[in-house]
């Protein structure tokens, strides 16, 4: 009698516990973040997204730098216009308007990278061969994109809030900080929701990244130009400004922070509830369109 034996090393079915599908959605979201930011890939894949992120954060970084190197008293010596550190850069509610072109550019890069690449390389077929459905696939991709766009849309403001706290020119108490924090998060949430869904809807039109990028930029810029021209020269109702997606995103931030609307974007006459409603309506329409497209896409394996 011996204990020696030869084991079968052939195929074995996985008999362990399987995680629910939302794990796959989370994994897809995590992979989406890695993919669009070029994480775990060569440096050249990181260049574009990080260049925009750095550019978007640059004003905030300058403000933080000033806060660190120039306490409030030193700064006020430079002139009466500098009462505190936030005076040297955009206000929290203005910040998105300040970097809106960069964010549009960022959306035009990350949305096609997340959606079109899967279609062009055939990865979509592999995903759909897993427990993921078209809807849960879109949910996973949305979550990843939303996370990175929310980061660029609200990260700089959070940095400035931290800087004002460090410098002592921010809100007077913890409640004030929490209130500002909540405003930044709420504004970031709405802006990211609006731009993520619109970016996904446009990206669902083509499998080519470059074309999707161009379509996103063209659509957003054309909507801004046309709504402006129609309101200023065409005599149409001011409410038509809700079709200016970038202007709407900019207004959302300003309204949440209670700052005066910017006259350039055409949404200054709109009531705050209408601005927020329009942003949510755009998001709903965009994600519905994207879902509609994905229900009809032929998937090649």
């Amino acid at each position: 009698m011996t204990d020696a034996r030869i084991h079968d090393t052939g195929y074995r079915k996985f008999e362990g516990e399987r995680r629910p599908v939302w794990w796959a959605i989370l994994d897809l979201a995590k992979h989406g973040v890695q993919r669009v930011l070029g994480l775990k890939r060569k440096g050249k894949h990181k260049l574009l997204p990080f260049a925009i992120i750095v550019a978007a954060f640059l004003p905030a970084i300058v403000i933080v730098g000033l806060a660190v190197m120039n306490p409030f008293d030193d700064l006020s010596d430079r002139g009466p216009q500098f009462n505190d550190v936030s005076d040297v850069g955009p206000q929290l509610g203005e910040y998105f308007g300040f970097i809106s072109l960069l964010v549009v550019l960022f959306v035009s890069f990350v949305s096609p990278e997340a959606l079109c690449t899967d279609r062009r390389t055939g990865m979509l077929g592999l995903y759909l061969a897993s427990p993921l459905t078209r809807d849960t696939y879109l949910l996973g991709r949305f979550a990843g994109l939303f996370a990175v766009i929310a980061f660029i849309a609200s990260g700089p403001q959070l940095l400035i809030l931290a800087a004002t706290g460090f410098e002592g020119s921010g809100p007077d108490n913890v409640l004030g900080y929490l209130s500002e924090f909540a405003r930044i998060v709420a504004a970031g949430f709405l802006v990211a929701l609006l731009l993520t869904t619109v970016g996904m809807a446009i990206s669902s039109l083509t499998a080519r990244n470059g074309i999707a990028s161009a379509l996103i930029v063209i659509t957003l810029m054309t909507l801004a130009a046309v709504t402006g021209a129609l309101i200023e020269g065409g005599g149409v109702a001011d409410e038509f400004a809700v079709f200016n997606v970038v202007g709407l995103a900019e207004s959302v931030g300003r309204r949440i922070f209670g700052e005066p609307p910017h006259s350039d974007v055409g949404t200054e006459v709109l009531a705050t509830p209408l601005v927020i409603f329009a942003a949510l309506a755009w998001s709903t329409a965009a994600i519905t369109f994207c879902r509609f497209r994905y229900q009809r896409i032929d998937v090649r394996q």
Binding site: L48, N209, V217
Partner: peptide
């Protein structure tokens, strides 16, 4: 990614 770089040039530099 020439198209994207071109767009970045148009949006950021030219505009």
């Amino acid at each position: 990614r020439a198209l994207w770089w071109g767009l970045a040039y148009i949006l950021i530099w030219e505009n």
